[in-house]
Simulated assay, not measured.
Amino acid sequence: MPRSKIELRHVRYIIAAAESGSFRRAAQDLGVEQSAISRRIRDVEDEIGAQLFRRHSAGVHLTEIGRQFLRQASPVAHQIGSALESARTIAAAGRHLRIGVFGPLTMGFLSELFGAFRQDRPGTRLQFSEASSPELIAAVRRRQLDVGVVAEASPGRGYAMTHLWNEPVYLAMAESDPLADRKAVRWCDLRNHHFVVTDLPTGDFAKAYLERQLMAPRDALRIEQLSVTRESLMQIVAHGGGVTIAGSAHVRFGLSGITFRLIEDAMLRYGAVHPSGSLPRDLERLLTLAKSLSERDQAWFTRQRLIRPEHRRGPRVDRLRGARGRTLDRLQ
Protein backbone atom coordinates (compact mmCIF):
# COMPACT_ATOMS: atom_id res chain seq x y z
CA MET A 1 0.00 0.00 0.00
CA PRO A 2 1.25 3.56 -0.70
CA ARG A 3 2.62 5.28 2.39
CA SER A 4 0.55 8.28 3.51
CA LYS A 5 1.75 11.32 5.47
CA ILE A 6 -1.72 11.94 6.90
CA GLU A 7 -1.84 11.78 10.71
CA LEU A 8 -4.65 11.77 13.26
CA ARG A 9 -4.30 15.51 13.81
CA HIS A 10 -5.09 16.14 10.14
CA VAL A 11 -8.45 14.41 10.61
CA ARG A 12 -9.08 16.30 13.86
CA TYR A 13 -8.51 19.61 12.08
CA ILE A 14 -10.88 18.65 9.24
CA ILE A 15 -13.61 17.61 11.74
CA ALA A 16 -13.20 20.87 13.71
CA ALA A 17 -13.36 22.99 10.55
CA ALA A 18 -16.44 21.14 9.29
CA GLU A 19 -18.25 21.48 12.64
CA SER A 20 -17.44 25.18 13.09
CA GLY A 21 -17.69 26.20 9.41
CA SER A 22 -14.52 28.28 9.81
CA PHE A 23 -10.77 27.69 9.92
CA ARG A 24 -10.46 30.58 12.38
CA ARG A 25 -13.05 29.20 14.83
CA ALA A 26 -11.60 25.70 14.48
CA ALA A 27 -8.17 27.07 15.41
CA GLN A 28 -9.64 28.81 18.46
CA ASP A 29 -11.44 25.63 19.57
CA LEU A 30 -8.27 23.54 19.25
CA GLY A 31 -5.91 26.16 20.64
CA VAL A 32 -3.66 26.29 17.57
CA GLU A 33 -2.76 28.87 14.94
CA GLN A 34 -5.17 29.31 12.01
CA SER A 35 -2.26 28.75 9.63
CA ALA A 36 -1.76 25.27 11.13
CA ILE A 37 -5.38 24.36 10.30
CA SER A 38 -5.08 25.66 6.73
CA ARG A 39 -1.73 23.95 6.15
CA ARG A 40 -2.80 20.50 7.43
CA ILE A 41 -6.06 20.55 5.47
CA ARG A 42 -4.10 21.56 2.37
CA ASP A 43 -1.80 18.56 2.97
CA VAL A 44 -4.79 16.19 2.81
CA GLU A 45 -6.24 17.90 -0.25
CA ASP A 46 -2.88 17.66 -2.03
CA GLU A 47 -2.58 13.96 -1.22
CA ILE A 48 -6.05 12.99 -2.46
CA GLY A 49 -5.95 15.48 -5.36
CA ALA A 50 -9.26 17.20 -4.63
CA GLN A 51 -10.69 19.91 -2.38
CA LEU A 52 -12.35 18.98 0.90
CA PHE A 53 -13.70 22.48 1.55
CA ARG A 54 -15.02 25.34 -0.52
CA ARG A 55 -13.74 28.67 0.83
CA HIS A 56 -16.03 31.71 0.87
CA SER A 57 -16.23 35.04 2.69
CA ALA A 58 -18.35 33.68 5.56
CA GLY A 59 -16.12 30.63 6.16
CA VAL A 60 -15.91 27.15 4.65
CA HIS A 61 -18.19 24.22 3.89
CA LEU A 62 -17.50 20.63 2.87
CA THR A 63 -17.45 19.50 -0.71
CA GLU A 64 -19.07 16.19 -1.67
CA ILE A 65 -15.62 14.54 -1.50
CA GLY A 66 -15.09 16.18 1.91
CA ARG A 67 -18.38 14.76 3.21
CA GLN A 68 -17.51 11.28 1.94
CA PHE A 69 -14.04 11.51 3.51
CA LEU A 70 -15.47 12.47 6.92
CA ARG A 71 -18.16 9.76 6.84
CA GLN A 72 -15.36 7.18 6.80
CA ALA A 73 -12.66 9.03 8.77
CA SER A 74 -14.73 10.41 11.69
CA PRO A 75 -15.60 7.05 13.33
CA VAL A 76 -11.97 5.97 13.10
CA ALA A 77 -10.75 9.24 14.65
CA HIS A 78 -13.26 8.95 17.49
CA GLN A 79 -12.27 5.33 18.14
CA ILE A 80 -8.58 6.25 18.28
CA GLY A 81 -9.35 9.17 20.60
CA SER A 82 -11.38 6.90 22.89
CA ALA A 83 -8.61 4.28 22.87
CA LEU A 84 -6.00 6.90 23.79
CA GLU A 85 -8.13 8.24 26.64
CA SER A 86 -8.70 4.74 28.01
CA ALA A 87 -4.98 3.99 27.80
CA ARG A 88 -4.16 7.25 29.63
CA THR A 89 -6.61 6.37 32.40
CA ILE A 90 -5.12 2.89 32.83
CA ALA A 91 -1.57 4.24 32.75
CA ALA A 92 -2.39 6.92 35.33
CA ALA A 93 -4.01 4.36 37.63
CA GLY A 94 -0.87 2.21 37.44
CA ARG A 95 1.62 5.02 38.11
CA HIS A 96 3.33 4.72 41.46
CA LEU A 97 6.62 5.39 43.20
CA ARG A 98 8.12 2.96 45.69
CA ILE A 99 9.68 5.02 48.46
CA GLY A 100 11.72 3.69 51.35
CA VAL A 101 12.24 5.88 54.39
CA PHE A 102 14.57 5.68 57.35
CA GLY A 103 12.61 7.36 60.12
CA PRO A 104 9.09 8.73 60.54
CA LEU A 105 7.24 10.48 57.72
CA THR A 106 6.51 13.30 60.18
CA MET A 107 10.04 14.62 59.60
CA GLY A 108 9.53 18.21 58.49
CA PHE A 109 11.40 17.91 55.21
CA LEU A 110 9.54 14.79 54.12
CA SER A 111 6.06 16.02 55.03
CA GLU A 112 6.68 19.16 52.94
CA LEU A 113 8.18 17.17 50.06
CA PHE A 114 5.46 14.54 49.71
CA GLY A 115 2.71 17.11 50.19
CA ALA A 116 4.15 19.19 47.33
CA PHE A 117 4.55 16.10 45.14
CA ARG A 118 0.95 14.98 45.65
CA GLN A 119 -0.27 18.41 44.58
CA ASP A 120 2.00 18.35 41.52
CA ARG A 121 1.35 14.70 40.53
CA PRO A 122 -2.10 13.75 41.91
CA GLY A 123 -2.29 10.73 39.59
CA THR A 124 0.85 9.08 41.00
CA ARG A 125 0.43 6.79 44.00
CA LEU A 126 3.16 6.77 46.65
CA GLN A 127 3.99 3.41 48.24
CA PHE A 128 5.98 3.75 51.48
CA SER A 129 8.08 1.29 53.44
CA GLU A 130 10.45 1.73 56.35
CA ALA A 131 13.82 0.04 56.79
CA SER A 132 17.40 0.69 57.83
CA SER A 133 19.65 2.79 55.61
CA PRO A 134 21.75 -0.20 54.39
CA GLU A 135 18.56 -2.12 53.57
CA LEU A 136 17.15 0.83 51.63
CA ILE A 137 20.34 1.28 49.63
CA ALA A 138 20.39 -2.43 48.77
CA ALA A 139 16.74 -2.28 47.66
CA VAL A 140 17.46 0.71 45.40
CA ARG A 141 20.44 -1.09 43.84
CA ARG A 142 18.21 -4.14 43.17
CA ARG A 143 15.52 -1.82 41.68
CA GLN A 144 13.04 -2.94 44.34
CA LEU A 145 12.69 0.72 45.40
CA ASP A 146 12.64 3.83 43.26
CA VAL A 147 14.17 6.02 45.95
CA GLY A 148 15.29 5.70 49.56
CA VAL A 149 15.66 8.45 52.16
CA VAL A 150 18.64 7.47 54.32
CA ALA A 151 20.75 8.82 57.15
CA GLU A 152 24.54 8.93 57.44
CA ALA A 153 25.14 7.09 54.16
CA SER A 154 27.95 7.63 51.66
CA PRO A 155 27.85 7.49 47.85
CA GLY A 156 28.61 4.07 46.42
CA ARG A 157 28.48 1.89 43.34
CA GLY A 158 25.13 1.16 41.73
CA TYR A 159 23.26 4.22 42.96
CA ALA A 160 23.37 8.01 43.04
CA MET A 161 22.87 10.14 46.13
CA THR A 162 21.49 13.64 46.70
CA HIS A 163 22.18 15.39 50.01
CA LEU A 164 18.90 16.92 51.23
CA TRP A 165 19.21 18.19 54.79
CA ASN A 166 21.09 17.98 58.07
CA GLU A 167 19.33 17.34 61.34
CA PRO A 168 20.47 18.11 64.89
CA VAL A 169 20.23 15.35 67.49
CA TYR A 170 18.39 15.93 70.76
CA LEU A 171 18.32 14.17 74.10
CA ALA A 172 14.79 13.25 75.18
CA MET A 173 14.35 12.89 78.93
CA ALA A 174 11.75 13.15 81.67
CA GLU A 175 11.00 16.70 82.85
CA SER A 176 12.42 15.76 86.27
CA ASP A 177 15.84 14.77 84.87
CA PRO A 178 18.66 17.01 86.26
CA LEU A 179 19.92 17.63 82.71
CA ALA A 180 16.60 19.31 81.88
CA ASP A 181 17.89 22.48 83.57
CA ARG A 182 20.65 22.85 80.98
CA LYS A 183 20.37 24.70 77.68
CA ALA A 184 22.33 21.98 75.87
CA VAL A 185 24.19 18.80 76.77
CA ARG A 186 27.42 17.15 75.68
CA TRP A 187 28.19 13.52 74.99
CA CYS A 188 30.48 13.39 78.02
CA ASP A 189 27.48 14.25 80.21
CA LEU A 190 25.59 11.15 79.01
CA ARG A 191 27.98 8.23 79.49
CA ASN A 192 26.36 7.08 82.72
CA HIS A 193 22.78 7.50 81.60
CA HIS A 194 20.44 4.63 80.90
CA PHE A 195 19.37 4.81 77.24
CA VAL A 196 16.32 3.08 75.81
CA VAL A 197 15.77 2.48 72.07
CA THR A 198 13.30 0.41 70.04
CA ASP A 199 14.00 -2.78 68.12
CA LEU A 200 12.86 -1.06 64.90
CA PRO A 201 15.42 -0.07 62.21
CA THR A 202 15.67 3.39 63.77
CA GLY A 203 16.43 1.76 67.12
CA ASP A 204 19.22 -0.37 65.63
CA PHE A 205 20.70 2.80 64.14
CA ALA A 206 20.32 4.71 67.44
CA LYS A 207 22.11 1.97 69.36
CA ALA A 208 25.06 1.87 66.95
CA TYR A 209 25.17 5.67 66.84
CA LEU A 210 25.24 5.93 70.66
CA GLU A 211 28.01 3.36 70.89
CA ARG A 212 30.14 5.44 68.50
CA GLN A 213 29.44 8.80 70.10
CA LEU A 214 29.72 7.89 73.79
CA MET A 215 33.20 6.42 73.27
CA ALA A 216 33.03 4.05 76.19
CA PRO A 217 33.64 0.29 76.44
CA ARG A 218 30.58 -1.56 75.20
CA ASP A 219 30.10 -3.39 78.50
CA ALA A 220 30.07 -0.04 80.31
CA LEU A 221 27.25 1.41 78.19
CA ARG A 222 23.70 1.24 79.42
CA ILE A 223 21.64 0.90 76.23
CA GLU A 224 18.46 -1.17 76.46
CA GLN A 225 16.65 -2.20 73.29
CA LEU A 226 12.90 -2.68 73.79
CA SER A 227 10.23 -4.32 71.61
CA VAL A 228 7.98 -1.27 71.56
CA THR A 229 6.85 1.38 69.10
CA ARG A 230 8.41 4.85 69.01
CA GLU A 231 5.30 6.26 70.70
CA SER A 232 5.51 3.74 73.56
CA LEU A 233 9.23 4.40 73.92
CA MET A 234 8.55 8.09 74.49
CA GLN A 235 6.01 7.22 77.21
CA ILE A 236 8.67 5.11 78.94
CA VAL A 237 11.04 8.10 78.78
CA ALA A 238 8.35 10.46 80.14
CA HIS A 239 7.85 8.14 83.14
CA GLY A 240 11.56 8.15 83.97
CA GLY A 241 12.38 4.74 82.46
CA GLY A 242 15.46 6.06 80.66
CA VAL A 243 16.56 8.66 78.13
CA THR A 244 16.79 8.42 74.34
CA ILE A 245 17.84 10.43 71.33
CA ALA A 246 15.30 12.15 69.09
CA GLY A 247 15.09 14.18 65.91
CA SER A 248 13.46 17.45 65.02
CA ALA A 249 10.01 15.96 64.36
CA HIS A 250 9.52 15.05 68.03
CA VAL A 251 10.82 18.44 69.17
CA ARG A 252 8.56 20.41 66.82
CA PHE A 253 5.41 18.71 68.01
CA GLY A 254 6.45 18.31 71.64
CA LEU A 255 5.45 15.46 73.95
CA SER A 256 3.82 15.69 77.35
CA GLY A 257 6.20 14.97 80.23
CA ILE A 258 9.35 15.09 78.05
CA THR A 259 12.09 17.72 77.81
CA PHE A 260 14.33 17.92 74.74
CA ARG A 261 17.84 19.33 74.85
CA LEU A 262 20.22 19.78 71.95
CA ILE A 263 23.31 17.57 72.03
CA GLU A 264 26.31 19.72 71.11
CA ASP A 265 28.13 18.77 67.89
CA ALA A 266 25.58 16.04 67.09
CA MET A 267 24.21 16.16 63.58
CA LEU A 268 22.89 13.62 61.07
CA ARG A 269 23.08 13.95 57.27
CA TYR A 270 20.00 12.85 55.33
CA GLY A 271 19.93 12.17 51.61
CA ALA A 272 18.02 10.46 48.82
CA VAL A 273 19.52 7.43 47.08
CA HIS A 274 18.19 6.48 43.66
CA PRO A 275 19.31 4.52 40.59
CA SER A 276 21.99 6.07 38.38
CA GLY A 277 21.27 7.11 34.80
CA SER A 278 17.96 8.05 33.23
CA LEU A 279 14.97 8.07 35.59
CA PRO A 280 11.17 7.86 35.18
CA ARG A 281 9.52 11.27 34.91
CA ASP A 282 7.71 10.98 38.26
CA LEU A 283 10.95 10.14 40.06
CA GLU A 284 12.76 12.99 38.29
CA ARG A 285 10.02 15.36 39.45
CA LEU A 286 10.21 14.12 43.05
CA LEU A 287 13.99 14.64 43.11
CA THR A 288 13.62 18.10 41.54
CA LEU A 289 11.16 19.08 44.28
CA ALA A 290 13.48 17.63 46.93
CA LYS A 291 16.47 19.58 45.60
CA SER A 292 14.35 22.74 45.52
CA LEU A 293 13.44 22.25 49.18
CA SER A 294 17.07 21.64 50.11
CA GLU A 295 17.98 25.01 48.58
CA ARG A 296 15.44 27.05 50.54
CA ASP A 297 16.71 29.86 52.74
CA GLN A 298 17.99 29.25 56.24
CA ALA A 299 14.85 30.77 57.81
CA TRP A 300 12.74 27.89 56.46
CA PHE A 301 15.19 25.30 57.80
CA THR A 302 15.26 27.00 61.19
CA ARG A 303 11.45 26.89 61.40
CA GLN A 304 11.64 23.15 60.69
CA ARG A 305 14.45 22.80 63.30
CA LEU A 306 16.73 21.53 60.55
CA ILE A 307 20.09 22.61 59.20
CA ARG A 308 20.47 23.67 55.58
CA PRO A 309 22.98 21.51 53.67
CA GLU A 310 26.02 23.21 52.22
CA HIS A 311 25.71 22.79 48.45
CA ARG A 312 28.94 24.68 47.90
CA ARG A 313 32.03 24.18 49.97
CA GLY A 314 33.59 27.36 51.24
CA PRO A 315 37.32 27.99 51.13
CA ARG A 316 37.72 27.58 54.86
CA VAL A 317 36.43 24.77 57.08
CA ASP A 318 36.31 27.21 60.02
CA ARG A 319 33.71 29.29 58.21
CA LEU A 320 31.45 26.25 57.78
CA ARG A 321 31.82 25.28 61.40
CA GLY A 322 31.02 28.80 62.48
CA ALA A 323 27.90 28.91 60.32
CA ARG A 324 26.76 25.58 61.67
CA GLY A 325 27.32 26.76 65.22
CA ARG A 326 25.16 29.85 64.68
CA THR A 327 22.41 27.66 63.21
CA LEU A 328 22.49 25.31 66.18
CA ASP A 329 22.20 28.27 68.54
CA ARG A 330 18.97 29.31 66.81
CA LEU A 331 17.60 25.75 67.07
CA GLN A 332 17.98 25.56 70.84
Rank of each mutant, 00 (worst) to 15 (best):
T124G: 10
R261T: 01
M173W: 04
D282C: 02
L289F: 03
F69E: 00
G148C: 04
R261D: 00
L62K: 05
R330W: 05
F301G: 08
L328T: 07
V185R: 02
N192F: 15
M267E: 14
Q213W: 00
L233V: 08
I245L: 09
N166F: 10
F117G: 06
Q68K: 15
A50G: 04
R303N: 13
P2T: 08
G59Q: 09
D189R: 04
R141M: 10
E112L: 13
D318L: 12
D265C: 03
I41V: 15
R324N: 12
R191N: 08
T229I: 00
A180C: 07
V76L: 11
R305K: 06
R222P: 03
G66L: 02
A220W: 06
P280A: 10
V243Q: 00
F109Y: 12
H311G: 15
T198M: 06
A160S: 08
S38W: 12
D297E: 11
R319E: 15
A208Q: 09
L62Q: 11
H10I: 04
G59A: 03
R303M: 07
S294T: 09
A138C: 13
S22G: 13
H56N: 11
S256E: 13
L145Y: 01
V251P: 05
G148E: 01
V185W: 03
R98L: 06
A87L: 10
D282S: 13
I41N: 02
F195Y: 13
L145V: 05
D46V: 01
L289G: 05
D120S: 12
D46K: 11
R252M: 11
A323Q: 14
P122C: 10
V251Q: 01
P201T: 11
P315G: 15
P134Q: 03
A93T: 14
H78V: 11
L279R: 00
E64K: 07
T229H: 05
T162Y: 03
N166R: 08
G49Q: 07
R55V: 14
V251I: 09
G240F: 01
R316E: 15
I48Y: 15
I80D: 00
L145A: 01
G254A: 06
E112R: 12
R296N: 03
G59V: 09
A249E: 02
G254Y: 03
A206D: 05
E135Q: 12
S86E: 14
V32A: 02
I65L: 14
F117N: 05
Y270W: 10
L190E: 00
V32T: 07
G158S: 04
L331V: 09
R308F: 04
L113F: 06
A208V: 05
G322F: 12
G103H: 11
T229M: 07
L331T: 01
I90N: 10
C188M: 13
I223S: 05
G240K: 03
R330H: 02
A139N: 05
I90Y: 05
F23E: 08
W187C: 08
A323W: 10
A138R: 15
Y159Q: 03
R313C: 02
R330E: 12
S278A: 08
R12S: 11
Q68A: 15
I236A: 04
A131Q: 15
I137H: 02
L136S: 00
R313L: 12
D199L: 14
M234L: 14
V150S: 00
R40S: 15
M1D: 07
R95L: 11
R218S: 13
R252A: 10
M107R: 07
F109P: 01
R142Q: 12
T327P: 03
L214M: 14
A131P: 04
R319P: 00
Y270V: 09
A36N: 12
H61C: 01
T198D: 01
